[in-house]
Design a binder for these strands. Structure first.
Length: 599
RNA sequence: GACCCCGUAGCUCAGUUGGAUAGAGCGAGUGCCUUCUAAGCACUAGGUCACAGGUUCGAAUCCUGUCGGGGUCGCCA
């Protein structure tokens, strides 16, 4: 909420803050526009508070409309009691006093179009040049503690291709939030407390007997048949000899389970490392039970009056055959916006999975996170409301922000043909298969070159193509090209010297400069929307403009970066190239894609 | 039955959270290109933003409804 309170004053003298070190042209100008609106309000001797939240400063779609457009006159017309065009005149008059403003137009229903002085751009580039690869970052988040939980796959085997997207998305979002000033923790929730981990243990036990020389034959259905459990059996055999064979299941199960969990998590961490993902917290569900936190959490909720005994209505539509009305211990989630109340205890009195979910949320909240971000598969759409309800019940309504981002499915293709995946044992495509085939950079970029909630087609043939059709290649190639010219320049002894960015005047160059100026704003809006894909699209566009400028150098040699007969321009263009490279490198770093020096 | 997501050019998708004449790539058509790094460059055509209402200065974007596609819906994890 940004509002101004002002009192009537006869004369209004305003001082604009110059463009400052935040290097976000648009947020700086938004402040100036608000200052101008404030001054106009004082001229009109308005009383009271005016909401300036809806005032924006953005790049106009049409470059001919100027450098910055604002809707101020239109959104404030009601509050000021003046027609938009009249108000626009008044605000424009104030804005034209700004030292960086060349002139101000009013267009259409009341847009104020600001044309900046040419001197602004060299200053911006100078600043970007000195900031280097950190240009684009901001303090938007103000150090807010945010927790990004992603992957959290069950530790029953290696990650499969379905985990790719959430893994990459979560990682990129975490990095985006880090660059925009949030204090981010990357976290993985290990579901190591349910019945399925016992199944893993039993499967591993078979492999143990196999490792001792026994013939185990076909793995019974209901157990995990994958070869990846063989090493677990081997390690158990090495550590225990045949000692476990003499024990009852109740005795060997915990031993085998612990070992199997540890080794499965190592496997998963390796898979993630192949995608350059390293989460700093791996949180065990079992630890919540062992520490008594699950029970404590339910006790707390009960004390707060959010728990009751009752039964839930059967699902509408198709009622399952085995439906029985049962009394359970329920959390009153509907009081916090959920569609139905959620069971904490099963009818036999044991904890539900949801109970540990609640305890886990409470644990995060107690660790001080103000924003809990969950990256889930699209089949978890039903989780959104219950996660919000839990946070509201535990922390108090509105105390903690819950953000759930759902990632749609990835469909694999091989030269246009869908890759068939049988659910039968061993025939699923693993994450490792994909990464090994096309490399982490391609996987990461392609997973982010789509809105998260839109389904994604991944064609092995297309993503390794070297053409404009392949955005990964296109963007990396742009970065490599900048490096290549800088290398050539260095080889010719052309490095160093002070650039004079006022020499950059070609429309193609100006277009790139404007796009670079938008970068900090782009990062902020992507962070607010939790949409890292915007960074990928931005890079694709920047790369496109850069390649176009490059190609103009063919027809118009005076536009080339290295001009042997014009040292001053060369030095300037090399510095310009460096700034382009910084932005590409910064964006690629957020996406977790290696900026290639040569290709 | 309820809830969530999606529906934009022939195809695959963006669309700066409500802005101005809705954009890009591929495909199609036309013309160029022997290179500061080759895998190209420029231009043209292509649209009832699923449909119907509503909100307001202004809607692809927000609200309601309809149609179509996908997902989910008590003890599994």
């Amino acid at each position: 909420m940004t509002s101004i309170r002002f009192s009537a004053r006869a004369t209004v003298r305003i001082e604009f803050k110059g463009l400052d070190c935040s290097m976000n042209l648009f947020s700086d100008f938004l402040a100036s526009i608000r200052t101008a609106a404030n001054a106009v309000a004082a001229d009109y001797a308005l009383q009271g508070t005016i909401d300036l939240d809806k005032v924006t400063a953005e790049p106009p779609r049409e470059p001919t409309h100027g450098d910055i457009a604002t809707n101020a006159a239109m959104v404030l017309t009601k509050a000021f009691g003046k027609p938009p065009r009249v108000l626009a005149e008044a605000i424009a008059a104030k804005l034209s006093e700004h030292t960086d403003v060349a002139h101000v137009d009013i267009a259409g229903p009341g847009f104020i179009n600001i044309r900046l002085r040419q001197t602004v751009w060299p200053r911006l580039l100078d600043a970007a040049l000195s900031l280097g690869e950190s240009y684009g970052g901001s303090r938007l988040g103000g150090g807010l503690k945010a927790n990004v939980e992603y992957v959290s796959a069950n530790p029953t085997g290696p990650l499969h291709v379905g985990h790719c997207r959430g893994a990459v998305f979560g990682d990129a979002l975490a990095q985006l939030l880090t660059e925009t000033g949030f204090d981010v923790t990357r976290e993985y929730y290990i579901n190591d407390a349910g019945a399925q981990v016992d199944t893993v243990a039993r499967s591993a036990f078979l492999r143990y007997r196999e490792a001792l020389g026994e013939t185990i034959g076909e793995i019974p259905s209901g157990l995990y048949p994958g070869d990846y459990l063989k090493p677990v059996g081997a390690v158990l055999a090495r550590e225990h000899g045949d000692g476990l064979l003499a024990l009852d299941e109740a005795q060997w199960l915990p031993i085998v389970r612990t070992k199997a969990m540890a080794m499965m998590m190592d496997l998963i961490r390796d898979d993630l490392a192949a995608l350059n993902i390293r989460q700093e917290v791996f949180f065990s569900e079992k630890s919540l039970h062992d520490s008594g936190e699950v029970a404590d959490t339910i006790a707390d909720l009960r004390a707060a009056g959010h728990v009751y005994q009752g039964s839930l209505p059967p699902p509408k539509g198709e009622v399952p055959d085995d439906w029985e009305d049962r009394e359970q211990t329920l959390f009153r989630a509907t009081a916090f916006g959920d569609d139905m109340d959620r069971p904490l205890l099963k009818s036999d009195g044991s904890f539900t999975y949801f109970a540990s979910d609640v305890a886990y949320s409470r644990n995060k909240i107690r660790r001080g996170y103000k924003e809990l971000i969950y990256i889930l598969g699209a089949d978890h759409g039903g989780y959104v409301k219950r996660l919000e309800a839990v946070a509201a019940a535990v922390a108090g309504p509105g105390a903690v922000k819950v953000v759930v981002r759902l990632c749609q499915l990835v469909k694999l293709y091989r030269a246009g043909e869908p890759v068939r995946m049988s659910k039968r044992a061993g025939e699923f495509v693993t994450l490792r298969d994909v990464v090994d085939e096309v490399g982490p950079d391609v996987v990461r970029f392609m997973m982010l070159f789509r809105k998260n909630e839109a389904p994604l087609d991944f064609d092995f043939a297309k993503v390794t193509e070297q053409s404009k059709d392949n955005p990964v290649f296109y963007v990396q190639y742009a970065h490599a090209r900048t490096c290549s010219v800088l290398r050539n320049a260095e080889a010719e002894g052309l490095s160093g010297g002070k650039p004079d960015f006022a020499l950059l005047t070609d429309p193609a160059e100006m277009g790139i400069i404007r796009r670079i100026a938008e970068y900090p704003r782009l990062l902020e809006s992507a962070a607010i929307a939790h949409e890292p894909h915007r960074v990928a699209f931005y890079l694709y566009e920047l790369a496109g403009e850069f390649h176009a400028l490059w190609n103009k150098g063919k027809e118009s040699p005076q536009l080339r970066f290295i001009l042997k007969e014009d040292l001053e321009t060369t030095i300037t263009r090399l510095a310009f190239l460096r700034v382009i490279r910084y932005v590409l490198a910064n964006g690629l770093r957020i996406l977790g894609v290696r900026p290639a020096d040569e290709m």
